[in-house]
Design a protein around this nucleic acid. Structure first.
Lengths: 199, 199
DNA sequence: GCGGCAATTGTGGTTATCCGCAACACTGCT
DNA sequence: AGCAGTGTTGCGGATAACCACAATTGCCGC
């Protein structure tokens, strides 16, 4: 399996039990005793899923979840809750939590869901790679080229673009060619499709 | 408010209470005593939201929810549950339920959520209208034109398309022009953007 | 100041697209 | 048989896109 299960729970007994459980199923994992300590170690590049206790001292699970979301984390989160709070569970899932499991939980079921989440994160990672290369290509586009590009995507003729920007048609052609080159496409249609996946 | 709250509950007292509650807040509503009876009346064109009891005889709320989804309903669904079943709630929300409310519920809170759902459905309807006109335009495209269109969207030259389909370039040009006319665009770029919103 | 980069423009020629006009074959329906 | 719709093709010309070669201007950093 590609990712790691990140366990955050203030109960050492639970951390140990989960650690043992995951190891026994060949799922890599690592545990933290508090939301704050995990947040300190968190990095954008972490791949896997978060197994997060709802009720903890200081910062709660949902609070950590929101903080991570603000910082751009897309790590799938599985909440562990010990007190049947439906509004909390519904709110968490509506905000994008991957799953919500009641304690006491069935061991096998939990591991299965974690593995699902790891797989989900892996596919998410694939998508992000595509977006990243697209973004790096977009970053090479100069401001002037961007102006031309927008108009190309409106389906405007080079002549019209030239008029709007008060430049010669030849210049537009050059920009156009550079844009295609930098974006790795060879027609306006491909460019449109490439960018439509982002918007 | 544009839509109607569709109440499905086998408890007459609840149906009456909800009906009275919604009327008092100027929310149009209508009630059914069972999933089957609602299903019999359901039509694609119904706009509003579904307020659905989880536990009912014969067909349960979640079962009705899934059936409706299979039939293409996108009606937002608010579940009413009387027995704190977290896995059920989480499963429902993950499957796209709009909300999940525990009984006994706070009257104002429920109405607020219903109004939210009605508003959501209205915006959903807007989006669907765009998709509908697009679909009706696509329906006018003949099979042969569709073959040409796919290749246009691959950014291929008319000449290449002609070779692939073993027809003259002129024919491709004619198809191309018809496609643009029927789809209401005037360039391949616009066509690509129009269709990318669908895929 | 020199090199690099972005932006600009020109010339001239090749290739593609876009269109009006005209025509023919095939299918299905009346 | 006649009509409508679809698919097909040709001719010729107008318009636009694409491209290699060549060159100028202005800004920024070393």
């Amino acid at each position: 399996m590609s990712g790691t299960a990140f366990i955050v729970d203030d109960d050492e007994a639970i951390r140990d039990a989960l650690t043992w459980l995951f190891k026994s199923r060949q799922v890599a994992c690592r545990a933290w005793p508090s939301a704050e300590s995990f947040l300190a170690d968190w990095k954008e590049s972490m791949r896997g899923c978060l197994v997060l206790d709802v009720r903890m001292d200081d910062m709660s699970g949902p609070e950590l979840f929101e903080l991570l979301a603000e910082r751009g984390s897309q790590l799938p989160v599985i909440f562990l809750s010990g007190h049947g709070d439906i509004p909390l569970a519904v709110a968490a899932v509506k905000k994008g939590a991957y799953d919500f499991v009641e304690k006491p939980f069935n061991d096998n079921e939990l591991v299965d869901r974690v593995i699902q989440a790891l797989s989900y994160d892996a596919s998410l990672h694939e998508r992000q790679r595509g977006q990243a290369t697209l973004a790096s290509r977009l970053a090479q586009i100069t401001p002037r080229e961007r102006e031309v590009m927008e108009r190309i995507l409106d389906g405007k003729y080079n002549k019209v673009i030239a008029d709007e920007l008060n430049i010669a048609m030849r210049t537009v052609e050059v920009h156009r060619a550079r844009i295609f080159e930098k974006m790795g496409v060879k027609s306006a249609v491909e460019l449109a499709q490439l960018l439509s996946s982002l918007k």
